[in-house]
């Protein structure tokens, strides 16, 4: 069991700051997802923790030990690469035991641990095969096996599921999560897929442009997004972010006649509302239906209210034609207020 502490980490390439002064820490045995769009610095952060790249500034502390200056091999951690990085000339057994073998673990010990890991991941029948003879999911398991056999307290995963098809991905999601809990490993998991992050992680660190936007439990990110960026990244479809016009009795949706949905006066703000919290009814904000998208269990209806577009999630398949006049309403508690300029959350004043 080991915790990870990252302090004021910076990585710059030339003038570009890929990782810009970020700090966070994890508890031992925690499953943390680094989430963000491509180019946000999440993979670089992972590589800095792993020791595959040298930091420009800041510290990496693993289990209370400052490892910033140590090479990857001395950090007592394992890693699963996005491309799996299996050695094409070695069979599955040799791939999994590669680390033990170069570290001089006796053959008998290697065999015992290989058997354990092979049983854990269902690799027993594949041990003699070369990576080229395996499916994507099997290769993924081998990569995981190579990481787990080292029995390091920390395991880093770089987009491990991105090369798998949807079915396999959800299987592996559960499998990795249950392995992590059973073995009590501290896992840091890089992904651009919010579903993965939300469903697997104890904590999600959402990054953008080299900085941390929000660091919290999945429910926090969903229920109390710290900024417009987070609000727009989490949820499918993402939160509606609506511009407001200031009025005497309280701000209204831009281009509409009311009713008031935001605070009166103060700094200009935008309104965030999740599609699943908007209801179609007889009272509330007048709007017209623009399009309907049917997804089976529910439908997403795009409405125009004033100059703004509002997405509404409804169960089943409502029969709403283009141009139908509707009224939108939502519970007061479901509305999020963000500063228009900074994009940061403002709790209802």
């Amino acid at each position: 069991m080991a915790d990870i502490r990252v302090e004021n980490l910076v990585k710059s390439w030339g003038g570009l700051r890929a990782v810009d002064d970020i700090s966070f820490d994890t508890r031992a045995g925690e499953f943390v997802a680094l989430l963000g769009p491509s180019g946000c610095g999440k993979s670089t952060t992972l590589r800095l923790i792993a020791g595959l790249d040298a930091v420009s500034a800041g510290r990496v502390v693993l289990a209370g030990r400052d490892v910033t200056a140590l090479p990857a091999s001395k950090r007592n951690l394992s890693m699963v690469f996005q491309s799996y990085a299996l050695f094409p000339h070695l069979n599955v057994a040799e791939n999994v035991t590669f680390g033990l073998s170069v570290r001089g673990v006796p053959k008998a010990g290697q065999a015992a641990r290989l058997k354990h890991v092979a049983d854990l991941l269902g690799l027993a029948a594949l041990l003699d095969r070369r990576p080229s003879q395996l499916s994507g999911g099997q290769q993924q398991r081998v990569a995981l096996g190579r990481a787990l056999i080292a029995e390091t307290p920390i395991c880093l995963l770089d987009e491990p599921l991105s090369n798998l098809d949807a079915q396999l991905r959800s299987e592996m999601r559960n499998e990795i999560r249950s392995l992590q809990q059973r073995l009590g490993i501290t896992m840091v998991f890089v992904t651009h897929d919010q579903t993965e992050a939300m469903s697997m992680a104890d904590r999600v660190i959402l990054m953008r442009q080299g900085r941390i936007e929000q660091n919290g439990a999945p429910a926090d990110l969903y229920e109390k997004p710290a900024s417009v960026t987070v609000a727009k990244f989490i949820g499918t479809p993402p939160m509606n972010i609506l511009a407001l016009d200031a009025r005497e009795g309280g701000a209204v949706i831009a281009g509409s006649a009311g009713p008031a949905v935001g605070p009166a006066g103060g700094r200009p703000v935008v309104l965030g509302i999740r599609p699943e919290h908007v209801a179609l009814g007889s009272g509330g904000l007048p709007a017209t239906v623009e399009t309907t998208e049917y997804f089976g269990a529910d439908s997403i209806i795009a409405c125009r209210a004033g100059s703004q577009r509002v997405l509404v999630r409804m169960p089943g398949k409502p029969s709403l034609d283009k141009g139908t006049a509707v009224h939108l309403s939502w519970p007061r508690a479901a509305a999020h207020i963000f500063d228009q300029e900074t994009g940061l959350r403002r709790d209802a004043a």
Partner: peptide, 18 residues
């Protein structure tokens, strides 16, 4: 040769000679 393979080997504790 993919640099990732070399990185993976390094991370597993292999020396340059290995």
């Amino acid at each position: 040769i993919s640099p990732t393979l070399i990185e993976a080997a390094e991370l597993e504790g292999a020396s340059r000679r290995q």
